[in-house]
Design a protein around this nucleic acid. Structure first.
Lengths: 171, 171
DNA sequence: TATTGTTATACTCTATAACTATA
DNA sequence: TATAGTTATAGAGTATAACAATA
């Protein structure tokens, strides 16, 4: 294609700069972004954004929380939740229930349709998991999971909460 | 804090929904986003965005490429590169050199200052790597790297190129 | 006419802050 | 007055498409 075909870029250019195999941190970021993109494609087929899928999962996991509580868990401003909740509520997957004791709170629950929908989401999630782990046998997958879990704990990451909700410099 | 303290959310709510330990795909996305955020903080101290750092690294690795070629490698539109290159050129880290044979091409090179700067970037990168791998000994880090590399190859990811440059649905 | 780099425009996403209703 | 939720506004980042220079 180019008059200058130069080096193959596979194992280091000829001009001093080292080949530089990426370390674990880079590989994690690279694979993480890839996995997130693939997941976005998959849930997109269910007309869901990744953020919506995460919210749905959180509500299924801890129903009855107020939007403030959910926002705190996710580390996102409450105003952002409004649109997310709106979308899922319009589709009939979740519902806001006003707390009679304190009518300022809107507790979030899955509807019956939402509960059904979770099965489809789980199927998509399993397919995604299998796709990403392609090339590793069962023992290696367990081994990887054990290592990743330890890293996640060490880094103080909450179980099941994707940091994609947080601002760049938040904890 | 709340009148409703409910379950501890650590090991499954009492209402049917399973605890659900995240799989490898989720852990990768979670740790990847976390690693990317931490990296952003670190290079931010060098007044660099992650995208700029990646571009700098690519230029150091394969100097003399045209902006079109770099854009193709990164999978990003050429128009986006212009601002990125502008910023790095204004800081004197890289330079555009017009090709006398075909004056439409601007080949990208590191300046002397840019070469010096790469050492600082490497230091930051090493500290980042060590931070992310905290809790794993040398053998485990190598083990993790071996597994991640195999996944990256299987997923068709280019060596050293972060997919953060690509649009959500690109390959 | 085709290609490289640039500029202009529009769009999406998000956070901040003002607003309301309840307390 | 304080808090939950909502709405309005503004900003950052990005892609698409028009443009100028060169071939």
């Amino acid at each position: 294609m180019s008059t200058n075909k130069s080096v193959s870029a596979k194992d280091g250019g000829g001009d001093g700069s080292p080949p530089r195999r990426p370390g674990n941190a880079f590989l994690l970021a690279q694979l993480g972004a890839h996995a997130a993109a693939r997941f976005a494609e998959r849930v997109g087929q269910l007309d869901l954004t990744p953020a919506q899928a995460g919210l749905l999962r959180l509500i299924a996991w801890q129903p009855g929380q107020s939007q403030q509580a959910v926002a705190r868990t996710l580390g996102t401003p409450p105003s952002r939740l409004v649109l997310l909740v709106d979308g899922l509520e319009e589709r009939g997957l979740i519902e806001r229930r006003r707390n009679p004791e304190d009518r300022r709170h809107h507790a979030l629950y899955l509807t019956a349709a939402g509960t059904d929908f979770m099965a489809r989401l789980a199927t998509v999630g399993a397919a995604h998991e299998d796709d990403i782990c392609d090339g590793l046998d069962q023992r290696e997958r367990a081994q990887l999971q054990e290592l990743l879990e330890r890293l996640a704990v060490r880094q103080g990451l909450a179980v099941g909460v994707h940091p994609g909700y947080r601002p760049p410099a938040a904890r």
